[in-house]
Simulated assay, not measured.
Amino acid sequence: MEWLPIVITGLLGGGGLGAVLVFLATRRRDSDSAIAERFDDASQLAQYIRDEVERQVAPIREELKGVRRESHEMHDAVRAHFTQLWIWDREGRNGPLPLLPLEILNRLGLGHFVASAFEDTEPTSPNKEHS
Rank of each mutant, 00 (worst) to 15 (best):
R38A: 07
E63R: 15
Q84K: 06
G92E: 05
V20G: 00
I87W: 07
F82S: 15
R28S: 06
S33H: 12
R27T: 00
I49L: 11
A42Y: 06
T26S: 04
E62Y: 12
V22L: 10
D30C: 08
L24K: 01
D51L: 03
R61K: 15
V20H: 00
Q44R: 08
T83F: 08
Q84A: 11
I49G: 07
S43A: 10
S33I: 13
H75K: 15
A25F: 10
R93P: 08
H72R: 15
E62Q: 14
E54D: 11
A77Y: 03
V57R: 15
L24Y: 04
Q44Y: 07
R68C: 12
A77K: 02
E70C: 11
L85H: 02
Q44H: 06
G16V: 03
L85G: 00
A42T: 09
R28N: 09
K65Q: 13
G16W: 01
R93Y: 08
D41V: 12
W86D: 15
S43Y: 09
K65Y: 09
R55I: 04
V22N: 05
R79G: 03
G66H: 08
E63P: 08
L17I: 00
G16E: 06
W88M: 07
F23P: 00
D32E: 13
E91C: 06
R55T: 01
R69P: 05
G16D: 04
S33Y: 07
A42F: 07
L64E: 09
Q44G: 05
D40P: 03
D32F: 09
V22P: 01
F39I: 13
D32A: 11
D51K: 01
D89A: 07
S31W: 08
G15W: 03
E70L: 12
L21T: 04
L45P: 01
A25M: 11
L64C: 10
Y48C: 08
Q56V: 15
R90E: 06
G18I: 05
A80T: 09
A77P: 00
R27M: 04
R55K: 07
R29Y: 11
E73S: 10
A34W: 04
H72V: 14
I49Y: 09
V53T: 07
M74A: 14
L24T: 01
A80I: 06
H81R: 04
V57Q: 14
E52I: 00
R68S: 14
Y48R: 08
P59A: 00
